[in-house]
Simulated assay, not measured.
Amino acid sequence: MSAALDDLAILPATDQPYDIHYQDDVLLVVSKPSHLLTVPGRHPANRDCLISRVQREFPTAQVVHRLDYDTSGLVILPLTKKALSEISKQFQARTVEKTYQAVVAGQIAESGTIDLAIAADPEHRPLYKICQQTGKPSVTRFQRLQYNAQQDNSAVLLEPITGRSHQLRLHLAAIGHPILGDTFYGGDIVAKARPRLLLHARQIRFNHPLNGKWLQIELAPDFAD
């Protein structure tokens, strides 16, 4: 095995299946479980992923956006080239609206906006970092749902205005409220607080690629604090 291959992480795929939450002739909206890649990873051991599983039943399914390995929640999968093209345009125009739910350490403010540029961190790949000088503009809105004083954590809704890699995880860690279970940016205590990252793509809203009607799909997370 080459040294480059040795450097690639092996990410064991969960046995938990995906579920279909919307289906018609041109698209699916499915839920990806935590601990599953959206697309195959670079390491040969990381071939099992959401799209490979879905394509066993729907061979024409394609990926138009992704969720991190650790993140659960809703994913749109077009079934035709036209649907793929139309939904891709919506993502490029930032008209697709997504809401995430998370549980974070500490008592976060009732609401707010995090506006911190994000750049790759070449010295600590695959991590990213806050860098106002070289980073890309990155904006996240948040709203606290509740604060658990006994456990000192907050349930929060998150709306990413931009779609940078690791944006939600990094933004929340940067303001002192890392997501529980975050092994990248949470530190040892937060990383070990839960067996998975408590981040879930709860709601997605977009225009149907054929009839233009507004579609809104919602799925509550299977974690609670």
Rank of each mutant, 00 (worst) to 15 (best):
D7Y: 03
L8G: 01
L8C: 03
A9Q: 10
T14M: 05
T14D: 08
D15I: 01
P17A: 08
P17F: 09
Y18P: 00
I20D: 11
Y22G: 11
Y22C: 08
Q23V: 10
D25P: 07
V26G: 10
V26L: 13
V29N: 07
V29T: 08
S31P: 01
H35N: 15
H35P: 00
L37G: 11
V39L: 08
A45I: 04
A45V: 02
N46A: 06
N46E: 10
R47H: 09
C49F: 08
R53L: 13
V54G: 08
F58T: 13
P59E: 08
T60F: 13
V63T: 12
V64T: 07
V64C: 07
R66C: 11
L67W: 06
D68M: 13
T71R: 13
S72W: 03
G73N: 08
L74T: 10
V75D: 05
L79Y: 14
T80V: 04
S85Q: 14
S85G: 09
S85R: 15
K89C: 07
Q90E: 14
F91K: 05
F91V: 06
R94S: 13
R94C: 03
T95W: 02
V96N: 12
E97N: 14
E97V: 12
A105C: 03
G106F: 10
Q107W: 02
I108A: 00
A109V: 00
A109T: 00
A109L: 01
G112C: 02
G112T: 01
G112P: 03
T113I: 14
T113W: 01
T113R: 15
I114W: 06
A119M: 09
A119P: 06
A120T: 14
D121G: 10
P122C: 07
E123P: 01
H124D: 15
L127A: 08
K129H: 06
I130G: 07
I130E: 02
Q132S: 15
Q132R: 14
G135T: 05
G135H: 04
P137W: 10
S138I: 06
F142P: 02
F142G: 00
Q143L: 04
Q143A: 08
Q146S: 10
Q150F: 07
L158G: 00
T162V: 06
S165H: 15
S165M: 08
H166V: 06
R169F: 03
A174T: 03
G176I: 11
H177P: 00
P178G: 01
I179V: 11
D182K: 09
Y185G: 04
G186I: 07
G186H: 09
G187K: 06
D188P: 11
A193E: 06
P195K: 13
L197G: 07
L197P: 10
F206Q: 04
L215Q: 15
A220D: 15
P221R: 06
P221T: 10
